[in-house]
Amino acid sequence: MELIVEAVSHQYGATEVMADISFTIGSGEIVTVIGPSGCGKSTLLRFLGGLERPTSGKVFIEGAAPDGSLNPLTYVFQDFALLPWRTVEGNVRLVLDDHRLSASHTDEIVDDVLARTKLSEFRSAWPRQLSGGMKQRVAIARALAVRPAVMLMDEPLSALDSQTRELLMDDLVELWGRERFSACYVTHNLAEAVRLGHRIVVLSRRPGRIREVVDIDVPLSERATRMAELEVTQRHLWQLMRDEAREADRELLHVD
């Protein structure tokens, strides 16, 4: 299943948030979107998952969702969005309850995703007892439970400390190796974009436009050990972003 963004522009009232954004997320492909804060990344992701509609332009799905996909377009949120009154297991079950699966099938899925995200021993813990990294793993387990065709990830690692971020990036790469999920991964962190993206879409400051699209050929699993080769790409991206970030920063100061 492919997700196609076609000429999307959007305004909130008089504020133009993004202009003429087009790109495609192929099957099994991770597209990372980077851009300075306020350039409309979260808004774009809401359009991709159908939580909001753009002022103009459209988002299309092409091809059928894989068999057994319960929720083809599935989010992983920056703030985890776990229900504090449900345990780890309860949070995963929440998204399965409405699908009329047999009890044994549900149990199977829950056991499976908790095992895959290494959470089996924490299944009856409350969210408040978990560290940030663990919470995000629960959110990823919950997303995997509905067998998404495309994962929509809004800065999923931004609320975490840098060590946890490294660990979770490794986890995501390993997971992708097994599941070959497609994803639109939004971030403002260059290192994440370069580690996880098959393709990197660089947005300008608000109103967000596509500055450049960079493809990276190095396989995900080899990137951690071949950072030297990626250094060039990362430096190029940083040059693109630096000016945008600086200008965006000054703009915010003007607004205040």
Partner: peptide, 27 residues
């Protein structure tokens, strides 16, 4: 609101959103 949006994004039924997200949150 983010929790409600999460419920919608996973395609939960209206009833489920009310009984599993809104009511416990308001409790």
């Amino acid at each position: 609101r983010n929790l409600i949006r999460m419920g919608q994004s996973f395609g939960l039924k209206w009833r489920s959103i009310v009984t599993k997200i809104i009511l416990p949150g308001a409790l």
